[in-house]
Nucleic acid binder design. Structure first.
Lengths: 198, 198
DNA sequence: GTGGTTTTGTATTGATCGGTTCAGAACTTG
DNA sequence: CAAGTTCTGAACCGATCAATACAAAACCAC
């Protein structure tokens, strides 16, 4: 019925997401987005209505992808729950130190957006809230299972422990972004687990 | 010999710092800085050479003020070392939940700048590195003292424990910025201490 | 006061911002 | 092929960006 798109919308969204991830929302210009996606302005504004909406879709995509990856680790029933939590923290270390495009960690787009936008952009805040709730739900369930089978000895509530682990993850990402080396971030993960197993 | 300033440079710096703290570097315009400080553009550019330099001075001032406050808590010899670490975490909670200008936590300008600028602005990265090193030094010394007097039972190295506590602090700030309530952030602090006392 | 120096407010710089317009190329459907 | 629709590229929009120019006002030393 009409001319089809000459580009893959998902690939464009991925490129935009990476740009927001690297530079942040404010520091990313629409020209940067054109360059990164290889699209013209018209195509971008025709497909995604504005920079803001493109960002929102980028963030939603990122959060969904990451939460799925996290859930995959946490719901791997071939391991006992406590080891799944450890595997999750180890994955964070890998995330931060493998494949660094420009020598420094990019951190986590979720954390970065929380810092840059949560107080100012209600839609971003909504996406981030939903994501946090989802991740905490999975974490809490796994920790509760670990408490039942004895691999997690802490008697604190599983919700509190989940919030704790989630906060540590954020702290590890900040540390990596601040230039901490891999061993230092790994030792944060190792130490953090002491609070669960004791 | 000439006309004196009609404003207090330190007060202007404070106002600028608050603006950067609330909005971030990129989202703060020079007009915002004029409004916040009550100065004209000429006065700002005459006193601080550029937006970037004004930011650098704001950040340096913030980091110095905060590090001093942290050191004051950690070096309060009227308490045993372990309690000082607890007091530090409690102070973070207070920082995040007392005096919120717009209902949401502003987080920490140091954390915020790490996320927004550490990868892109070498001078900001330098200031943040120096600050992290300073805070880790004090923390590590206090933790080592706690290990000697037995109030901190963990047998991990005091440097690793210091990095851990520092990461938890960052995670607590992210959590608060993400909308977590006070009890939730406090429970992160409480749980985090389990890793030291066990 | 006067000269010399600095600050200050206003106007303005060129560049870039996010976003729109529009003509024509490109494609599907019939 | 032709009609109808969508996509694309380039020019362009007013607004705003960080930063500067400049002249008048304000002040100190003399």
């Amino acid at each position: 019925m009409a001319r089809p798109r000459q580009f893959d919308e998902d690939r464009a969204l991925d490129a935009a997401m990476r740009t927001f991830w690297e530079c942040g929302y404010e520091a990313t210009s629409t020209q940067d987005l054109c360059t990164a996606t290889g699209l013209g302005r018209s195509s971008i504004y025709n497909t995604f209505r504005s920079k803001r909406e493109l960002f929102a879709r980028s963030l939603a995509r990122y959060l969904d992808t990451m939460a799925e990856a996290q859930d995959a680790v946490l719901e791997d029933t071939s391991r006992p729950p406590a080891q799944r939590v450890r595997a999750l923290l180890d994955k964070i270390v890998s995330d931060e130190f493998d494949h660094r495009p420009h020598g420094r960690s990019l951190g986590c787009l979720g954390v970065n957006s929380t810092v840059e936008l949560a107080a100012r952009d209600p839609e971003a805040a909504r996406l981030l809230d939903r994501d946090a709730a989802r991740r905490l739900r999975t974490l809490s369930a796994v920790i509760a299972a670990g408490q039942r089978d004895g691999s997690i000895a802490s008697t604190r509530g599983s919700d509190a422990l989940a919030r704790y682990v989630n906060a540590v993850i954020g702290g590890m990402r900040i540390a990596a972004q601040g230039g901490a080396d891999r061993a230092a971030v790994q030792s944060v993960a190792d130490t953090a687990l002491d609070a669960l197993t004791s």
